[in-house]
Write a protein that binds this DNA or RNA. Sequence first.
DNA 1: TACAAAAGTGCAATGACTAAACTTTTGAAG
DNA 2: CTTCAAAAGTTTAGTCATTGCACTTTTGTA
Lengths: 186, 186
Amino acid sequence: MTEVIGRRERKKAQTRQALADAALALFLERGYDQVGVKEIADAADVSVTTLFKHFPSKEALVFDQDDDIEAALVQAVHGRPPAHTIVDALREYMLRDIAFGPDEPFLRLIESTPTLRDHARRMWMRHETALARAIAEESGAPEDDIACAALARFALASRELILAHPHRRRAAEEIFARLERGWRTE
Amino acid sequence: MTEVIGRRERKKAQTRQALADAALALFLERGYDQVGVKEIADAADVSVTTLFKHFPSKEALVFDQDDDIEAALVQAVHGRPPAHTIVDALREYMLRDIAFGPDEPFLRLIESTPTLRDHARRMWMRHETALARAIAEESGAPEDDIACAALARFALASRELILAHPHRRRAAEEIFARLERGWRTE
DNA sequence: TACAAAAGTGCAATGACTAAACTTTTGAAG
DNA sequence: CTTCAAAAGTTTAGTCATTGCACTTTTGTA
């Protein structure tokens, strides 16, 4: 019983992966709206019903690994180097995420599909409260402090802006420098 | 020919209004998801197809007068009192909008319906570029200046935050005071 | 081996939205 | 007052994502 993952879970993960892969390939090739769920299910050789057992929606097929992000985000704030401010930590997280993040064709797919754009935004904003709480803890403010909530929201909202900018590092530095000035505790 | 608006346009506006009214009444009574477009069309005594000629989507029925906002927003920045900074203008606009804005049951409807929440956010964010341009013009920055874009985005994004806060005026003042500090030109 | 849970299937339905072809209303020009 | 084209509306039939239901197959385990 050393290997907890049996054939069952492996197969499950396999079909899930097959679905995500098939979907992404088709989407990149012909565009999100030009591909039906039926086609994706066929390509992965499962039924449409099964597809929806693995993914709650068509959009979710594109954002395979939403999880982990929240933990990483909170960790970035709590585990930052001692010399760094909270805003520093947020800037560094964003830069790291963007560098190792998604490749260009993928970004273009999302950018050019309103539904996916929205879904991506939602995905990020879903972590807003968790991030706000982490910030509040670190700065000793009450849990529902409005300034902390605002900082969390603005930091997350800046992601899209940074991604859209030709020179991402510079954009991130500019934005977070201003946030730093506004949220500095003196 | 002094009155440019004929019976035609009046009738058109009438059906449009009838649809919006019927929709809102039904939504408030039974909830957004519990009302089908068919019902709304019936209540306004038109066909479903006609409904979609007037409104591009079911959600749009709730946000009847999206227009004007953008103009007001830009005007708030351009026409601000000489002593006011851009951030002052944005804060005042938000406070004014919230004060004279939508009533509580309406807000609760939107708040409690994910689809509508998203649509509202989209609605506001659609004015982001217009606002960013206005800010850039007023501060003499290049049209695509990243700091101006960020300020526009953050100001709009703060709306939801302020609305959710028990003491809205205080929340707005706190947030915009920090934006002021970050975006001050010295 | 036998059995229950999990994974998958097929089918029918719902509900938002669209296209196409057709009818009625209305504004305006002759 | 008639005529005519555009605008507003209707019907019908469809597409597409998503869900519920009843059923079969696979797989882990007692």
